[in-house]
Computed example of a mutant assay.
Amino acid sequence: MRFSLSIAVLAVFAGSAMADPLPSWQEGETKSRIIDFVSDVTDPGSDNYVTPSDRIAVFDNDGTLWAEKPVYFQLLYALDRLEEMAAKDPTILSSDVLKAAAAGDMDRVAKSGEEGLLEIVMVSHSGLSVPEFQADVARWIETAKHPTKNIAYTDMTYQPMLELLRYLRDEDFETYLVSGGGIHFMRAFVEAAYGVPPENVIGSAGKTRYEVVDGVPTILKDPGIAFIDDKAGKPIGIDSKIGKRPIFIGGNSDGDFEMLEWATAGNGPSLGLIVHHTDGEREWAYDRDSHVGKLVRGLDEADERGWLLVDMAEDWKRVWSGTGN
């Protein structure tokens, strides 16, 4: 009886060990490289063993963990909030780009470039305390639908990447978000969406100030940009927040190039991963000519730098976390 029980226990442990940590990834070189890397750095007998305290994994958000078309989802939130604000006080529409945004004229908004987009974000994201702003983002996330897919934004997270985050944490990696998106915007939903705690978010930051409001100490969001966590800002943000080079780095665009370059240039093992949007049927196919998520240099240099280029159409069995495809 004791022998039979031992066999049963061993069978359970063997089944757990053999369970596929990445079931939504197709079998092949891409999946094998990820698993081989994680197995190597977590094996105490390996020359590439990395102690748990140094197992740092960082991921971009837009286009890496969830979709980013037709524009970044934070901009869609900004447009909805600007419309609500203008309904209460039309005088806030003090420029042509703000008027175009409130009217839903995306062509004029797009032509305004980065400067126009920043103006929209600065106006729509200010005038609230941080808790008020994050509560408003959480409300929007729960109720808003994507303009063309007509599904919830949180259903447009990538199931294969959720599995990757979970797999890394199961192997004692600490996972962080390092995104050009706003830090307060992301902190409103990242724990529920990705299992990443709010304190593990590194993002762009608007100006804030401290004030006692009606006897309550408060952090208020003001117009203006304090830090842009994109391109060269990403390694600076990682260094300031974490103080260590990550060993697993995930991105999808040239906005992530410097983060990948810096993190994989250190001594010791590392794996850089780029999500390449090749699936025009289930998602969108884009890279070099896209107005968001442009991928040129990363595409050209991935092989020579040893970065793993994930072909969404070929490497993923399913795309979305919430729709089953």
Score class of each variant (00 low, 15 high):
M1R: 04
M1K: 05
L10K: 01
L10S: 08
L10P: 01
L10D: 03
A11I: 15
A11Q: 09
G15M: 12
P21I: 13
S24C: 10
W25F: 15
E27Y: 08
E27I: 09
T30V: 15
K31C: 13
K31E: 10
D36P: 01
D36S: 15
F37E: 10
V41L: 07
D43K: 11
D43M: 09
P44R: 13
S46W: 09
N48F: 13
N48G: 06
Y49N: 11
I56K: 14
I56E: 08
F59R: 14
D62L: 09
G63V: 11
T64S: 15
T64L: 06
E68K: 08
P70G: 02
Q74Y: 02
A78V: 08
L79Q: 03
L82C: 02
E83C: 03
M85N: 02
A86P: 03
K99G: 02
K99Y: 01
A101M: 06
M106R: 02
K111Y: 11
E114A: 03
L118Q: 04
L118K: 05
E119W: 09
V121P: 00
V123G: 02
V123M: 08
S126R: 00
S126V: 01
V130A: 02
E132Y: 00
D136S: 04
A138C: 00
A138K: 07
I141W: 06
A144C: 05
P147R: 06
N150T: 02
N150I: 01
D155R: 06
Y158C: 07
P160I: 03
L162R: 15
R169A: 14
R169F: 12
R169I: 04
F173D: 10
L177D: 05
L177T: 12
V178C: 14
G182M: 06
V190W: 07
V190Q: 06
A193P: 05
G203N: 12
G206E: 00
K207P: 00
T208N: 03
T208R: 11
T208A: 00
R209M: 07
Y210T: 04
V213L: 09
V216I: 14
P217H: 07
T218V: 06
T218Q: 00
K221M: 09
K221Y: 01
P223K: 11
G224Y: 01
G224K: 06
I225W: 13
D229M: 14
G233C: 05
K234C: 06
I238R: 12
I238W: 12
I242K: 09
I242V: 15
K244P: 07
F248Q: 10
N252Q: 14
G255P: 11
D256K: 11
E261L: 15
W262G: 01
W262V: 08
T264H: 12
G266K: 05
N267Q: 14
L273F: 14
L273T: 15
V275C: 13
H276Y: 15
T278R: 14
T278Q: 09
T278M: 10
E281F: 04
R282M: 08
W284K: 13
D289R: 05
S290C: 05
S290I: 04
L295I: 05
E301M: 12
A302R: 09
E304V: 13
E304M: 08
D311L: 07
D311W: 14
D311S: 11
A313D: 15
E314C: 05
E314Y: 11
K317T: 11
G324P: 11
